[in-house]
Amino acid sequence: MTMWALLIAFLAVGFYGLLAKRNVIKKILGLTILDHAVNLLLIMIGYRHGGCAPIRLPGEDHAGFVARSVDPIPQALVLTSIVIGLGITMLMVALALRIRQCYRTLDGTEVNRLKG
């Protein structure tokens, strides 16, 4: 239960940081937190109390394996999701550097040439 509460707090912090913070770097931090909160959600969905790592031992039958281990699918999904998050963060950092170069500021409220 604590974990779920924490998870919701992380999601809220991530969304808040990404949308409400003005500083571009803080937005990137918010995105990273949001990313990992979603990853945590995936892991929590696959988690089973007392379950062990999903490695199937030689000669073990399917039912026994399912009863013993945690769900491996969300873990595989998390790997992919981490990679996507890495790509997006890298792109965002590059854009932030370029914003700094063009606008001489990282304050989002001053990055406002586009209007209408």
Partner: peptide, 27 residues
């Protein structure tokens, strides 16, 4: 140029919110 990077950053931030919502829904 400045305007293009600004537009891209805005698009990226909102796109990330959309992706997060979709991934949570999938989970």
């Amino acid at each position: 140029k400045g305007e293009e990077v600004e537009a891209s950053f805005k698009y990226l931030v909102l796109g990330c919110v959309a992706s997060a919502a979709i991934l949570i829904a999938i989970a």
